[in-house]
Amino acid sequence: MDEYLVGVLSNVGVISFVALSAYLLLLTGEITFGQQAFFAIGAYAAGIATAMWGWTLAAGLGFGALAGALSATIVGVPTLRLHGLYFAIATLAFAEMVRILFEMFRYQIEIDGEWVGPNGADGFRDIRYIFENDISGMEFMLIIYGLLTVILAGFMLLERSRLGVIFRMIGEDEVLAGLQGVSVARYRILAAAIAGALAGIGGGLYAHLTTYIEPRIFDVMLGVHSLAYGLIGGLGTALGPILGVLIDIGLLESIRALSGYRMIIFGGLVALLLIVRPRGLLDERLVHRIGVALRGGRKMRV
């Protein structure tokens, strides 16, 4: 596989994490414009852990996931009462605050005569773990997709578990779910924490993939894109958001020739797609049909 393709695919894999993070919250009925905040927190935490504290990659990614989950829990509590647009804008306000705080965040130590660490708006350079440990681009891509596969398997299990049913139940009607004895607040915070961890891992991988992060990468655009991926690819399965990322980054890369016009074409295509399929390509109905077909025709399970 040539280097360019590895680069594009690695990028698709990493962005898929934050798309899945937004997708999980969509399952519980919440729209978020703020998952980029936990992506950023994970990126900084993992980068600091490996580049400054000398941790291993696995420990760094774990630390990023933990930081993402913790901060998502902390912001999840005060926003519990909020829904719909109110929740969406609250997450946006939070994410913008995080971005601005990272612009002011300076924490550097001297390693071998060089200053390493986040330096405000100038960003965080030289997160060189994968070079220092001779991990090739190909190997790192396999790490990304390995983790992604584990998480996808987790989503598949979730869809078949009681927890998954509860998440979708809260998404359909929170009041009704509460009347059925579901502790809505607890499960919403749990969903937020898992989503935060997912974005945190993705951020950690992103930091090591690019070796350089700066606050302005984690702006509203990334947040809205993450949400849009689920809608484009489909809300019926966790593969949907990944398909969305693949369509966006893959298609945009492949129509480079049309450089000046690509957003015009792509934006128009997405708008038309959403008219025909308002819940994305792989929506619940299609996924259900595929499931029935795979199980051998007519055996319908409710």
Partner: peptide, 29 residues
């Protein structure tokens, strides 16, 4: 006409995402 009129009731998120796609389009134009 493109993002709101053709959307069915209940497809509010689709409208919003669609308006985001058109944002990208308008900006590039």
């Amino acid at each position: 006409r493109l993002c709101f009129a053709p959307m069915k009731a209940g497809a509010a998120i689709a409208s919003m995402v669609s308006s985001f796609a058109i944002w990208m389009q308008l900006e590039q134009a």
